[in-house]
């Protein structure tokens, strides 16, 4: 494609190689190739139905239960070189390492603390002090600690939408993942809650690799380091965000980001 594909990515955390994905006979992703830069934010943009969410969900095997779903190609996770979509790889193991945050906040109907510790308890962590420590760390990481530290044992459903979303991020952070996937994390939030989540994502990249699907192109421009533009299941252009938003090399990218697509 072009030089910018590898430019600036010294050591990618993951490498997508010839990835195709089928829903039955429908080919939703067509031989995608791109690196996912380590501890950077990579944004996926594109019109509805272009396969962004399908692509994102491949990373933690969310399609496995879908009848007729089939992967081709590979997503190699470094440094161990595990193929995330390989048959021999257990999806549960994958999800331990790769967290996900969805469009609508989906906290469990339990207390705030229990939400955060869910994954850790699933892994068999029992020590109360350890769990309490993990709760504080994850909530601090998600910039929610100061707002909820006095009511850790009240219901998570009493929080505001933006707080719930940050709780979901804390829940994803608690298991110390290497990568977090965000599927339009702010489309259900007001501008202030959105700004807090964006701030948080920017801070997160110090520790984790972030892959985010967003319909808000300005958001992609603001928070990501690299951007991939997808169209009808194909990867049209992958470049540094600054390049893609000021001087894209492909006409279809240009048309989409300037609002000429249609």
């Amino acid at each position: 494609m072009n030089d910018s594909v590898t430019a600036g990515v010294a050591g990618p955390r993951a490498l997508v190689q010839d990835l195709s994905f089928y829903y039955g006979t429908f080919k939703a992703l067509k031989r995608l190739n791109m690196p996912i830069a380590d501890r950077r934010v990579t944004a996926l943009i594109g019109p509805s139905g272009c396969g962004k969410s399908t692509f994102l969900r491949c990373f933690n095997r969310m399609h496995d239960l879908q009848p007729g779903a089939r992967y081709e190609g590979s997503i190699i996770l470094h440094p161990e070189d595990i193929d995330l979509v390989g048959r021999e790889v257990d999806p549960i193991d994958v999800r331990m390492r790769i967290g996900m945050v969805f469009q609508k906040p989906n906290p469990f109907p339990t207390s705030i603390a229990d939400n955060v510790t869910y994954g850790l308890r699933l892994r068999g962590m029992k020590s109360r002090t350890q769990l309490a420590h993990a709760v504080e760390q994850a909530l601090r990481g998600a910039a929610l600690w100061d707002e909820v530290k006095d009511r850790l044992h009240s219901s998570a459903l009493a929080l505001s939408g933006g707080q719930m979303q940050r709780l979901c991020i804390a829940r994803a952070l608690a298991t110390n993942p290497e990568m977090i996937l965000f599927d339009e994390p702010t489309s259900a939030l007001d501008p202030i809650a959105t700004a807090k989540i964006e701030e948080l994502i920017a801070a997160l990249r110090e520790q984790v690799t972030v892959l985010i699907v967003t319909h808000n192109m300005q958001q992609a421009a603001r928070i990501s380091d690299f951007t991939a533009f997808m169209f009808l299941g194909e990867l049209i252009e992958y470049a540094s965000t600054a390049t893609l938003f000021t001087n894209p090399s492909q006409k279809r990218t240009e048309d989409y980001i300037t609002g000429r697509y249609g």
Partner: peptide, 8 residues
């Protein structure tokens, strides 16, 4: 143009 998309 047709191959300008996905490959690298």
């Amino acid at each position: 143009a047709p191959s300008a998309g996905a490959g690298n």
